[in-house]
């Protein structure tokens, strides 16, 4: 296992460097830069110093340096939590993303826990009660969850909450806690406000996972060893838990790596709709204004989370089921 972990981690390091370079270059690729829109505004107001001001700003943000030099400075700064200056408010990116990153991580982890718990219970129930009312209801929920876009569900919940219950379900905490230091009241407020975004963002993932778990478990339950066990009089619960459920759980573990980017990208538009103070809306703004440092830092964090998620899922899978797959060839 040490051999496996070392090899996987060693692959991870260059992967992250390549991703960081690609992200930085792609965000910088469109013509113009983050100063362009600010200068256009000054010129439209007839400011005679607009061009001189543009040079000052470019020098401040380091935009007068070649791309490779800016990239290397950004990478070197990363190790010291210094991601350069954001063009939006001329403040360090590290200060801008701190709380948002934490709130985003809390929301994504809660969403993944929600997806696992709900889909596990419903998936097992649907597979063990095939073609019964419960299975049809679970399948219906699954198809609806897959078919309805997250942002639409968010809009519907916003409307229903406001019109029928008089509730404002936007935001991730009560207004009195915004920009205030961490306290138990703030944590409690975040927990209460998390429920709706978690349901909205987690619905499609849950629906997909229910379908996969149901299909895998049904496959296992129809295998010879299960039939033999049943014929020998094994108790149904023991027969379910001992082998079929264990085998059917592998996709759960394997999906950790896929769930993270899916949940994060799915939450960007939902965060805009629900006015959540997470990284999504800020990333969107940074991409629109070509704030390279801010956008690249966010995207790199998403990449880091994805790579770590994939690593965790691969390590768990290697520990749980170190089996050769069909078509794979080992060195014999």
């Amino acid at each position: 296992m040490l051999n496996y972990i070392a090899r996987r981690v060693l692959l991870m390091i260059p992967t992250l460097f390549v991703i960081s370079a690609l992200v930085y270059v792609i965000v910088d690729l469109p013509p113009g830069d983050c100063v362009t829109s600010q200068i256009d505004e000054l010129l439209s107001r007839g400011d005679p110093d607009a061009l001189r001001r543009a040079d000052e700003l470019r020098s401040l943000y380091g935009l007068d340096q070649p791309l490779w030099q800016r990239y290397l400075e950004w990478v070197a700064g990363m190790f010291q939590w210094d991601f350069g200056l954001s063009c939006q408010d001329t403040v360090p990116v590290g200060d801008l993303i701190g709380e948002r990153l934490m709130l985003t991580m809390v929301m994504e982890v809660s969403t993944i826990a929600f997806i696992w718990i709900v889909s596990f219970i419903i998936g097992v129930y649907a597979a063990t009660h095939q073609y019964q009312a419960g299975d049809y209801i679970a399948s219906f929920i699954g198809f609806v969850g897959l078919a309805v876009p997250n942002f639409l569900l968010a809009l519907v919940l916003l409307y229903v909450g406001k019109v029928y219950f008089g509730l404002s379900i936007g935001g991730l905490m009560d207004p009195e806690y915004i920009d205030k230091p961490l306290s138990w009241g703030k944590v409690s407020s975040v927990m209460q406000h998390l429920i709706i975004p978690v349901i909205v963002i987690g619905t499609s993932g849950t629906a997909g996972m229910i379908r996969r778990l149901r299909a895998n478990l049904l496959d296992e339950l129809q295998k010879q060893y299960v039939v033999t066990g049943r014929a020998k009089g094994l108790p149904p619960m023991k027969l379910l838990i001992k082998y079929p459920l264990r085998h059917a759980l592998n996709p759960f573990v394997a999906d950790i790596g896929n769930l993270l980017p899916e949940v994060i990208s799915g939450s960007v538009i939902v965060s805009v709709v629900l006015s959540l103070p997470t990284t999504g809306p800020m990333l969107l703004g940074a991409l629109k204004t070509q704030d390279v440092n801010l956008a690249a830092t966010f995207l790199l964090f998403v990449a880091v989370l994805t790579v770590i998620g994939t690593l965790i899922s691969d390590l768990l899978l290697a520990a749980l089921d170190p089996r050769i797959r069909l078509g794979a060839t080992a060195e014999k």
Partner: peptide
């Protein structure tokens, strides 16, 4: 046990 660092487990 079988370990592979590739996604297709080859």
């Amino acid at each position: 046990s079988y370990y592979s660092t590739k996604r297709d487990r080859s």
